[in-house]
Design a protein around this nucleic acid. Structure first.
Length: 419
RNA sequence: GUGGGUAUAGCUCAGUUGGUUAGAGCGUCUGGUUGUGGCCCAGAAGGUCGUGGGUUCAAGUCCCAUUACUCACCCCA
């Protein structure tokens, strides 16, 4: 039997209600903050991600779904959205139509990693990008928007972590300091961390290995070596979060794996989703547009993992959503009346009601059991003596009350079914 | 890419020191008198015990391999 590919999954009808609820919520919150939806293709030229995310990152170097299409063009399924959004803004000169573009998306992403709890190869993110301003008020807005959505889902045990990476110059100076600090200790570092000294030295802070953490305990911190402008901006972000009532902590170890981040980086984590605890991550990327295009556009954004969020919702039992149920189930008393039931169903459906009936020639009892299972608000009986008098019986499934209505009076049937 | 765990009905799981026709609950279907659901009762369908080898008189049960799933590392959302 053919099954889904590892790391992908079907979302079945019973689960879809939660997805729809979350998507509706995202759209509502994004509208409140005046973000406009953008949709970009599922695949792009490989070079976009290679340049935009960074050749050396794990995402680009070992996780992308990259292949040659039939005309030998290197194609990549999008592993994240920011590069695509920036490409789109540049391509359509949205930045020239208006100075600030506030955009949001809900989209599948693809990364070929080993699946585990909260990690899939096709996964879904919603997120926002604000392009055209380097104001810290937008950095804070990203965190506020993301937090707003997560809070509205009833999630507790959220932690907001923020940090600032400053600008490249101060960061490079700091990296030199860090390298000096580690130079005589590198022998004691884990093999992984020794490798990082050359590739991405900041990530050594992230190591979960005890010896590494011990050594990094006394390492100089980037925060202490930021330039004045970066510090000022970071202060502003903190101030705005305080005013917004968002609890946060500063995490100097929060170093994102993607190359394009500058200034603010942040993450919102949950304790209730296993080891892949980051529900949401983002930051400022003032240098990205120039990397993939021909002009500077400052930007800030975030992405949130829908599967992880729903996992947290599931584990915290913070949300009750159920299938809405149908308006009316048409029960036919005699098998010969299927055609009449079918006609009535069509008429009621055309007047906007959600209607179901039996397609399996089942008994009246079985039909009623089905009506009950479908959580039908009303049932209509068609047949017997009432049908000979050209009437139907309308039953309220909750109270059990029944009334007869003329079959020809469709408006009356529809209205009473609604009410 | 590297480790650990699991694999029996549609789902959740039992299955005793290897020993006859492999079980339960839920779900599904049918019925419990003329044309009416939820609760209850009765019955039915549904499994080559992940796959392939091996040990044995005998394997769901022991051994090996393989695949899938899963959790963790890594990385990230």
């Amino acid at each position: 039997m053919i099954k889904t590919i590892a790391g992908t999954k079907d979302t079945l009808p019973g689960e879809i209600v939660k997805w729809r609820y979350l998507e509706d919520l995202v759209r509502k919150v994004m509208s409140e903050f005046n973000y406009k939806e953008i949709r970009t293709p599922v695949f792009e030229e490989t070079a976009l991600f290679a340049r935009g995310i960074g050749e050396a990152t794990d995402i680009v170097s070992k996780e992308m779904y990259t292949f040659l299409d039939r005309s030998e063009t290197s194609i990549t399924l999008k592993p994240e959205m920011t590069a695509s959004v920036v490409r789109s803004v540049l391509e359509h000169s949205l930045d020239k139509q208006q100075q600030l573009n506030k955009l949001y998306y809900i989209s599948p992403m693809f990364r070929q990693e080993r699946p585990q709890a909260g990690r899939f190869r096709q996964f879904h993110q919603f997120g926002a990008e604000a392009l055209g301003s380097s104001e810290p008020s937008l950095d804070a807005e990203m965190i506020i928007v993301a937090y707003e959505v997560l809070k509205s889902l009833g999630l507790s045990s959220l932690e907001v972590k923020i940090n600032s990476l400053g600008v490249p110059e101060s960061r490079e100076n700091y990296k030199k300091l860090l390298r000096e600090y580690l130079s005589d200790k590198s022998g004691k570092l884990s093999e992984e961390s020794r490798k990082r000294m050359d590739t991405n030295i900041l990530r050594i802070f992230d190591s979960k290995i005890d010896v590494d953490q011990e050594i990094m305990q006394n390492a100089p911190l980037l925060m202490e070596h930021l330039d004045d402008d970066s510090l000022e901006k970071f202060e502003e972000v903190k101030k705005l979060l305080l005013v917004a009532g968002i609890p946060f902590e500063i995490d100097p170890k929060l170093v994102r794996g993607l190359d394009y981040y500058t200034h603010t980086t942040f993450e919102i984590i949950s304790k209730n989703v296993g080891s892949q605890s980051a529900l949401c991550g983002g930051g400022r990327y003032d240098l990205l547009a120039n990397e993939i295009g021909d002009r500077d556009i400052p930007g800030v954004g975030f992405a949130a993992g829908i599967e992880r969020i729903l996992l947290a919702v599931e584990n915290e039992k913070s949300l009750e959503v159920s299938e809405p149920g149908i308006d009316v189930y048409i029960t036919r008393l005699d098998k010969e009346l299927f055609g009449d039931a079918y006609d009535l169903a069509l008429s009621l459906r055309r007047s906007g009601l959600n209607v179901e009936l039996d397609y399996l020639q089942r008994s009246v009892k079985a039909q009623m059991r089905e009506a009950n299972r479908l959580n039908a608000r009303k049932a209509i009986f068609i047949g017997g003596e009432e049908f000979e008098r050209n009437e139907i019986v309308l039953k309220d499934m909750e109270s059990g009350d029944q009334q007869t209505i003329a079959l020809s009076d469709l408006d009356s049937i529809a209205n009473k079914t609604k009410g």
